[in-house]
Nucleic acid binder design. Structure first.
Lengths: 200, 200, 200, 200
DNA sequence: AATGAATGAGCCTTCATTCAT
DNA sequence: TATGAATGAAGGCTCATTCAT
């Protein structure tokens, strides 16, 4: 009922983030439905009722987390996109990307987001919105990497973007199936694959 | 009056599958938490209480569905693995694979499974067990496709398997982000990528 | 979620009425907001959750009570309307009408209904719907009593109906203000007033 | 710097009335339970916490409003009672009385008060206390109007007062049932009725 | 005087599960 | 085998009220 005002005070924002951090952790461990407001409030060191001073409802907490996480991803792609040699920048980031995707906790939360998007319009909207931005960035990156190559058809360009996306998204799911993925070997397989998808 | 054992058992199994089918549909549309036993029972044309004659609890229904779905996947890979020309068989299946992954409802359920695995030991066990089998099949397939090529190191082989897996798993997530994926273009990008991962 | 089916069983209807009776009592004593579902369920000898097998929600309980009470009133006016000498029948009922209105418990509940109608669309709808029927009956009664008199204009007829209605409705409020109303004296004042409103 | 006592007290009273006005409006629109302290404080342009500097609790706000409203009514009857020709004065006020009673918002609040009186001792006490005063005034008015007529028995006098009271109280309830009451026709029916109750 | 962060109790509602029939 | 009445434990959320500032 009391959504935070525009020029919210720092203390207020801190408290808000405190909720977000606690909720993130709880959602990771228990899922969106498994983590109750009571759980989160306990983890955030705050009464359950007070959480509603910072968020309209549980869904809004989820949406805020989703927004935060997705924007982080968006930031990374923007960095890559701004690099001199985008292909190289992309490949350089890949290693860190792998580490991120293979972090089971983090992946579990991301997967939760995808699952939630199927039933929660607000989450879906956020997911789609940010994904559109990220996808656009990826297409930019591919085109930028192919500066000296003949341009691709729109359809092919988009398809390559989707496959690249699938590759990284898919690693999250793999991390949940296999705890012992060999990062080094993975990287050595991923690199030529990415290179091929971008500049072949 | 009572029919002999065998048919009775069959009727029982049919009834069980009836629940599983109904539950599958409900879970697809509503998620594991969104679909209540009442919902499922209504959809299965059976009283809520009676469902407990066939399943110990809701978790068991989920586990059974996961088991069934994963075994289906396993079956597909076994078929491919038994083909004359495995690479070609794999590529042939890819088109159908794409259709399956881009079915948003079905993907939503699969994703739900992954999310659930993080909190539900039984589901995780099933997921890991079947995934181990599927992964092994994939490795077989790769090796079979490379019959005339120098063998890969264990690590590289596994990594290629993971990347192939990520590719397909990832498509499910992509389907949730983008409703308008161009199947044909996707296939034309996927084919050389898969080929490269298997026989390059 | 489980609204009662059309051919509901008797036991089920009994149980439903059991809730209605308990709720009526609780609402009388505590008001619609003061009486919680827990209170009602305790008073009905039933778990709180089970109440939702008979009513979609608390509002539906309120609506059912309102409906039941108002229909009772409607029935009385229908009886009067069907009498040989409606004026006399009306006057005869007046005494019982007074008793009903001066029953503080019953009046408190009715007043609660009026108050609730201001904020609860479903209750308002029920109140208005039944009141329309009752009002129409009253107009019929007046006209019937004036069979041998010159007809009234539509406006005057309606106004007389409203004043008659106000008289009885108002008694409920009076009963809440004054515990010691002299029924006999009241009747002797009411009778000529009603007579004048109907046949003067 | 601090202003002298008197004005300070006045400012305090003003602030108090500011709360009362805001609360009145909120209660009209939302009912006693529907209007939260937060709602009221927002409407009063004051923090929720600060309201507790002026009122012990929500109940006290309700009681104060009831007191204020009832005293207004009392004032009106006192004016009538002091008029030269009380019957005429009463009839003159009737038109305004009708307007007041047919104001649905205002009536809803009054009804709310009656409902609340059933559960809230403080409200009931106020209601009864003021009603006693008002009733006494009405009896005075009747007697004064009958100056040249034979006196009524105590019981009959009181009964006439109750019926007059019921008439006006009842109009509030009628206004909630029927939005389209014809004021003019109502007045023309009410006038002879009142006249009869007072001087017949 | 004034704020608004903070609490905690309580409310309505849902749902997995059990059990008498 | 089959039903559905019944329970009880949460869960999300609201709100009167308090208190440090």
């Amino acid at each position: 009922m009391t959504p935070p005002e525009e020029p919210a005070k720092k203390a207020c924002l801190d408290r808000r983030n405190q909720v977000l951090d606690a909720a993130s952790e709880c959602f990771c461990a228990l899922g969106f439905h498994g983590a109750s407001i009571a759980t989160i409030s306990k983890s955030a060191g705050m009464s359950a009722g007070h959480i509603y001073h910072y968020f309209e409802n549980k869904e809004a907490i989820i949406a805020a987390i989703v927004e935060r996480d997705l924007n982080e991803v968006l930031g990374i792609f923007e960095q890559v996109s701004n690099a001199e040699d985008v292909l190289q920048a992309f490949l350089n980031r890949t290693s860190q990307g792998i580490d991120a995707k293979l972090d089971r906790k983090a992946s579990a939360l991301k997967i939760e987001v995808f699952a939630e998007a199927g039933r929660n319009a607000k989450v879906e909207e956020t997911l789609l919105r940010v994904d559109r931005l990220v996808s656009a960035k990826i297409l930019e990156i591919i085109q930028s990497a192919r500066r000296d190559l003949p341009p691709l058809s729109e359809a092919e360009l988009r398809a390559r973007g989707e496959v690249l996306g699938a590759l990284f998204h898919g690693l999250m799911l793999r991390s949940l199936c296999n705890r012992n993925i060999d990062r080094r070997a993975l990287l050595s397989v991923l690199e030529p694959t990415i290179r091929a998808l971008m500049v072949a």
